[in-house]
């Protein structure tokens, strides 16, 4: 009886601590999921799944940045979902070189790239590039935090972010050239 009461109380306390620590980051979690999954429904499913996993793992969560911790979980859930959507095909390790654009001699940056183009081109970037741009440029995580979230060395964060931006710039330049004709 006492145990039941005690267990009950710690459950409630843990749930409170969980909600305080992690519910404020719902928008950040959703934003990443939405950018990775391409559509609202899959993003919603992934975010809910991520929160449940986070809740189960919460007893192991020590003081620290709840937003980064949750983001790492969201990212894992999304990648698992993407894999499943692609038909359980094992994802090959990401090869930056393969995705690197052929150097574009034109250095023009479309200064007035419209919002539609930016969103479209960013959505079409390889997810490994896209997530770094979302995590750094939209969510404001540092290289070090991103390294921990994505489980890659900090040097890889640096080169991958740089290449992702270069690819986005080239795509935008090509896009605005096409649509101007």
């Amino acid at each position: 009886m006492m145990e039941e009461l005690y267990g009950n109380r710690t459950d409630a306390a843990m749930r409170q601590r969980f909600e305080e620590a992690l519910l404020p980051h719902l928008d950040a979690a959703y934003n990443l999921a939405r950018w990775l999954m391409h559509n609202p429904q899959d993003a919603e499913d992934c975010v809910q799944e991520a929160y449940l996993r986070a809740y189960k793992a919460f007893p192991r969560f020590r003081q620290g940045d709840g937003r980064a911790w949750l983001t790492a979980i969201v990212r894992n859930v999304c990648y698992t979902a993407i894999k499943r959507l692609r038909g359980r095909k094992e994802m090959e390790p990401f090869d930056e070189e393969l995705h690197f654009p052929t150097p574009n001699p034109s250095t023009e940056t479309p200064r007035e790239a419209d919002a539609e183009a930016v969103q479209l081109m960013l959505m079409n970037l390889a997810p490994e590039f896209r997530e770094l741009i979302v995590l750094h440029d939209l969510e404001g995580f540092s290289y070090k935090e991103i390294a921990a979230i994505a489980g890659i060395p900090i040097g890889t964060v640096m080169s991958r972010l740089s290449r992702g931006r270069e690819k986005l710039r080239a795509d935008l330049a090509a896009f605005s050239k096409d649509s101007n004709i």
Binding site: G7, N8, D11, A12, M14, R15, F18, E19, L23, L26, D27, A29, Y30, N31, R34, W35, P40, A43, E44, V47, Q48, Y51, L52, Y55, K56, R111, A113, D114, A115, V118, Q119, L122, I133, D137, L138, L168
Partner: peptide, 28 residues
């Protein structure tokens, strides 16, 4: 341009409610 023009998507209000409901189910 990315910061200015790529939107930050905001979670629909009902997700919070759903998550809290499911947390309730999953605790003992």
């Amino acid at each position: 341009a990315i910061r200015e023009k790529a939107p930050c998507f905001e979670a629909p209000g009902y997700i919070m409610t759903r998550i809290r409901a499911r947390l309730g189910e999953s605790s003992a």
